[in-house]
Computed example of a mutant assay.
Amino acid sequence: MTRKRRRLYFVVLGLLAVGTAAALVLSALRQDIVFFFSPSEIVEAKVPTEGRRIRLGGLVEQGSVVKDGASVKFRVTDGAHVVPVVYAGLLPDLFREGQGVVTEGKLGKDGVFQAAEVLAKHDENYMPKEVADSLKKSGHWQDEKKVDKP
């Protein structure tokens, strides 16, 4: 075997090893990716959500929070559509009706979102970018009006 042929074999084996490593990393990352969707995207079935872990974000609908023992039922809206959510666990202290929320979990076949985690807006100036973009797109975004001081 010549020196050039041996070098060619090493290069081919190196490229094959790098390609295999990249494929393994990408397949592992694909399983951990969690996509964000608004209630409108879920209700209008624009996304394949069945059996996948996703994030649902919007505003907690006024008058929709019902505590049932250890679980809590509420509805998340973007102003255009509503998705019912069931969560078993402790809610964040700042969770309340009319506030921005991001839930992570799976959408059931009955259309009820089974949340495994609930994240609430942490102060009056913050809303997750995905939720704000979704509300702006639906036309329900309300900017705080700046008050001129005399």
Score class of each variant (00 low, 15 high):
Leu94Tyr: 11
Gly14Thr: 09
Ser64Gln: 13
Glu44Phe: 09
His81Trp: 05
Gly98Ile: 10
Pro39Thr: 04
Val76Ile: 15
Leu15Ala: 13
Arg75Cys: 02
Val25His: 01
Val72Cys: 01
Val101Trp: 07
Leu59Gly: 01
Arg52Asp: 11
Pro48Ile: 07
Gly89Phe: 05
Gly108Tyr: 13
Gly100Phe: 05
Gly57Asn: 08
Ala28Phe: 08
Pro48Thr: 10
Phe37Thr: 02
Arg96Cys: 13
Gly58Ser: 12
Ile42Val: 13
Gly79Leu: 08
Gly57Gln: 08
Ser40Pro: 00
Glu41Tyr: 11
Phe95Cys: 10
Phe95Pro: 07
Val66Leu: 04
Val34Ile: 15
Ile33Gly: 01
Thr103Asn: 09
Ser64Gly: 13
Val76Cys: 07
Lys67Asn: 11
Gly57Tyr: 07
Ile54Cys: 04
Phe95Asn: 08
Leu94His: 11
Ala21Cys: 06
Glu61Ile: 02
Asp78Tyr: 04
Asp32Leu: 12
Val85Ser: 03
Leu26Met: 04
Ser71Pro: 02
Val82Asp: 02
Asp68Pro: 06
Gly98Phe: 09
Asp68Gln: 15
Glu61Gly: 02
Ser71Cys: 01
Val34Asn: 11
Gly69His: 09
Val34Ala: 13
Leu107Glu: 14
Arg96Leu: 14
Gly100Leu: 08
His81Cys: 06
Ala88Ser: 12
Arg53Glu: 14
Ile54Val: 14
Lys106Glu: 15
Ser40Met: 04
Gly79Ala: 09
Asp32Ser: 13
Val18Asp: 03
Arg96His: 15
Arg53Ile: 12
Leu90Lys: 12
Ser38Gly: 10
Leu26Ile: 01
Thr49Arg: 12
Leu59Gln: 04
Ala45Gln: 15
His81Tyr: 09
Gly57Trp: 06
Val43Ala: 07
Gly63Ser: 00
Gln31Tyr: 06
Arg53His: 11
Phe35Val: 08
Gly51Ala: 10
Leu107Cys: 15
Leu59Asn: 02
Val66Ile: 06
Tyr87Ile: 06
Ser38Glu: 06
Ala80Met: 14
Val47Leu: 10
Pro48Gly: 10
Asp78Lys: 03
Ala17Arg: 02
Pro48Ser: 11
Leu26Lys: 02
Thr20Arg: 00
Ile33Thr: 09
Gln99Ser: 14
Phe95Arg: 09
Val83His: 01
Val43Asp: 01
Arg96Thr: 13
Val76Phe: 06
Val85Pro: 03
Ala17Phe: 04
Val101Phe: 10
Val72Thr: 05
Ser27Ala: 08
